[in-house]
Design a protein around this nucleic acid. Structure first.
Lengths: 243, 243
DNA sequence: TCTGTCAATTTTGCATACAAAATTAGGCGA
DNA sequence: TCGCCTAATTTTGTATGCAAAATTGACAGA
């Protein structure tokens, strides 16, 4: 586990029994709130916190060796992001997405990412941009070779971060980089490549080729078709599971 | 101004000088955090808080007659939403969007709303759905007749809320209803209809006709063309202002 | 007049205290 | 055994205190 920075207030919360993490002055001092936010997001990504799990402020406080105040502020921040949900008088839970909501989220993401694909593709005449995209594709190949679904979905997420950054649309970049997008995207890894690793990778290679060739229209068509195919698979799997 | 509910803690914060709002037990008691969040969002919508304005926690606390704790939690929540930005050791400001960021935001919104337009249009065979959309269009006509840009943009926002709700995509609905979408959309009213009221309204009537006719493809094309036209106008106006 | 410095003031960030709501545990009757 | 009631415990929501960072303001020197 990491170590909480320490700035102001008075000191670390009083009780510091045997095995707890002692806070130390690091180089810089981001706020404890940021520290806790990052820790919780990491915990969710790594699967340490499960969907729907209740988060007890006091437990988090002692785990990260801070008081409840920054923990509660962090939880409210994450609630604003949509990563946790706050129940009146009953604290915070990691937000849980039903299969349907995850399907809906992917459909939503398609709409967002299409914009990034379209705008970034029209910048491929710049070799430096093209190079960034080419490099961002490598982890996708790597994760697919290892058949590691979590890494695969994460690599796809990072690939689209690159696209959205190159798009030149600041808002798109800002939005896609926020923790909630990473959080929700991670939740897709349960369903994403499913049993279709080969076709999935083939599709993305095609998308990548279209993007790097600078043909925005074809890139959009190819990307959209791929996501619609994934959505069909997810809906089929979901219907099968219900029956 | 409204009145803060009161639940637990101990009581209202000690000092209650002459003209301050005395908290009262209302029917229900949503948390003070929710109360403050709503109050700040309302303040931003109504223009009482300006873009970039610094929000002093202690001032808000005494204004709403609560302590700083719920105010800080509310500010963190709004920071998670992207309505305010938190600067380290320097508190909160209402988020300010540059002209370029507002243009980028509209381009982003296009991508989102296209999904709602497409999905909702395919539901127009249900008369009840169609009726809701038809009614949601009336405030648009009304605001346009009054040439009231803020109301106009707000009516457009609500119209798209209806579309996104009818879309059946729960995530789209969830996302579009969040305060930050309303907040950012409101910021567009500076630039939105600009000097093009008549064409803008004509375009939206056409979009509305396409949607209610149930022709999803045409609805998407019409909507996209309209937003691209608005984007061109905004970019021209922005370039002209820079020169 | 402008600019830089330093003390006074303001404001933030965090820890802590405590009442009320929620949860848990234990016991009692069916 | 099961369900229900009540008391003990946990947990939340809010208020408050205080040290450090940021801001303000007054003042000296250019």
């Amino acid at each position: 586990m990491s170590i909480a920075p320490r700035g102001r207030g008075s000191a670390a919360p009083s009780a510091t029994p045997a095995g707890t993490v002692v806070p130390l002055e690091d180089e810089v001092s981001p706020s404890l709130v940021d520290f806790v936010v990052d820790a919780i997001v990491d915990g969710v990504m790594s699967g340490r916190y499960a969907q729907g799990q209740r988060l007890i402020a006091a437990d988090l406080a002692s785990e990260y060796n801070v008081s409840r105040a920054p923990v509660r502020e962090a939880l409210h921040m994450l609630a604003g992001e949509g990563v946790v949900e706050l129940l009146a008088n009953r604290g915070a839970r990691i937000r849980r997405l039903s299969a349907q909501e995850r399907i809906d989220f992917l459909e939503f993401t398609e709409a967002i990412c299409v914009l990034g694909v379209r705008l970034a593709t029209s910048r491929m005449s710049d070799p430096a941009c093209r190079e960034r995209i080419v490099r961002a594709f490598e982890p996708i190949e790597d994760a697919a070779a290892r058949r590691h679904d979590r890494d695969f979905v994460d690599a796809l997420y990072r690939y689209h971060i690159e696209l959205n950054t190159l798009s030149g649309n600041q808002f798109l970049e800002f939005f896609y980089r926020r923790p909630h997008m990473r959080f929700y995207t991670t939740l897709l890894s349960d369903m994403a490549p499913g049993g279709h690793w080969d076709q999935y990778l083939l599709n993305y290679r095609l998308i990548h080729d279209m993007i790097t060739s600078g043909d925005a229209h074809s890139a959009v068509i190819t990307f959209t078709s791929h996501i619609r195919w994934v959505l069909r698979n997810m809906r089929l799997a979901s219907a099968a599971a219900a029956a």
